[in-house]
Amino acid sequence: MQTGIGITESRLAAIKKSLENVDAHALVAIPDWDGQHFASQTRDTYEGCIYLFSVPLEGGTEAFIYECVGKETEGSQ
């Protein structure tokens, strides 16, 4: 039986793109999502956000996905 969290390649690419050239602690809106899902290279507590799951990036690093309902964003959708 298969287990785990999955997403499509395009969603994974969007997550990677959101983390390009930002600080490791920055929480950034994931492009082409609903403006309420964010990614960070850090697993931390962000006010108003719920941690959902992590996704692997190149080089053994991970992106951590958060849902932040109602958070003000720029350039998310």
Binding site: Q2, I5, G6, I7, S10, F53, S54, V55
Partner: peptide, 12 residues
């Protein structure tokens, strides 16, 4: 076009 990414946390 689908990736299994991680196991699921109990929290999630």
């Amino acid at each position: 076009n689908v990736a299994i990414l991680q196991e699921m946390s109990h929290e999630f």
